[in-house]
């Protein structure tokens, strides 16, 4: 089915579902295409979130689907390279007609690379976002033979301009959400929305730029993002939106640089999270 293939190739990061307990545990895998230049941690988190979303939609009979909302913590444990296979698992902690709560993990060669702790997604009518029949059919495929790996072509780097701020204290940039992008075909066909994980990626870029202005940590080459916590997405971002991203240092010592990242549209806070950076190994 060519239309369906294009739909899910655009931004679907689960190739196969190997275990699906109603309202409980779900396991699957995703092979990161070799031809990609990179596969950032935000996309690994997206893969775990998508796995949990499949489990939630199955229980809710494709009447409702979760969208990104809250995450108590996301541990960024190791980088993932194109060509590697993610073993994905999620545990639904609760699920009803309003929200799903879950935790999850992505592993490479049995080693955790990203761990999601207590994520909560509001649950909304599927029909507002996608074709329920297409989703149902896709889940059947994922549970049977699995999708053909390698279709995903990656996402464009965040378009950040207008950098300003105070060196080593606060850094700001404008994010230009693309008007058109391949991933909107899947996220979502009936209501294109900039994925929360891509917004998180852009926020991490701004925070990383800030940490490059910080004193070099003892025993480290620089700072690397280790944990994103207290994540909250308060609004959908449509294509073509221009958002102000800001990262500010909250606390700095020899072991960690704690930053607060925020996204604003005018005076409204669209998202907020804390990002902990730790010394990068390999000095």
């Amino acid at each position: 089915m060519p239309g369906m293939e294009a739909h899910f190739r655009a931004f679907s990061l689960v190739d196969r579902i190997t275990r699906l307990e109603a309202g409980g545990r779900v396991e699957g895998r995703y092979h990161v295409p070799e031809h990609l230049a990179a596969f950032p941690a935000s996309l690994v988190a997206e893969a775990v979130g998508q796995l949990a979303a499949w489990a939630a939609m199955a229980v809710l009979a494709f009447r409702r689907r979760p969208v990104a909302g809250l995450a108590a913590g996301i541990d960024l444990l190791a980088p993932v390279r194109p060509g590697q296979t993610l073993e994905l698992a999620a545990e639904l902690e609760s699920l009803d007609e309003e929200a799903v709560a879950y935790s999850g993990v992505a592993l490479v060669n049995a080693r955790p690379v990203v761990r999601l702790e207590h994520c909560v997604g509001p649950v909304l009518p599927v029909e507002d976002f996608d074709d329920p029949a297409a989703l149902r059919q896709r889940l059947a495929l994922l549970q049977a033979d699995g999708a053909r790996p390698g279709g995903f072509d990656g996402v464009p780097a965040p378009d950040l301009t207008g950098w300003d701020g105070e060196a080593g204290r606060v850094r700001r940039a404008m994010l230009h959400v693309p008007t058109e992008a391949v991933f909107f075909a899947d996220h979502f066909p009936r209501r294109p929305v900039y994925p929360g994980t891509l917004l998180m990626h852009a926020n991490l870029e701004v925070a990383a730029a800030l940490t490059r202005e910080l004193p070099r940590p003892v025993g480290g080459q620089g700072w690397t993002a280790r944990r994103v916590s207290d994540v909250k997405l308060r609004a959908f971002t449509p294509p073509g939106e221009v958002l102000e991203l800001q990262a500010a240092v909250e606390k700095l010592d020899a072991q960690a640089a704690d930053t607060l990242v925020e996204t604003r549209k005018g005076t409204r806070v669209i998202s907020r999270a804390r990002v902990r950076f730790v010394p990068e190994a390999g000095a």
Binding site: G69, L70, E98, A99, V120, P122, K232, R234, A235
Partner: peptide, 22 residues
């Protein structure tokens, strides 16, 4: 906003170790 209500309920559940049905 609506997402804040979800957030508050889940945080209260953890802070007070109670289950608060939405």
């Amino acid at each position: 906003e609506s997402i804040d209500f979800l957030d508050i309920v889940f945080r209260l559940e953890r802070a007070f170790k109670v289950k608060i049905p939405r």
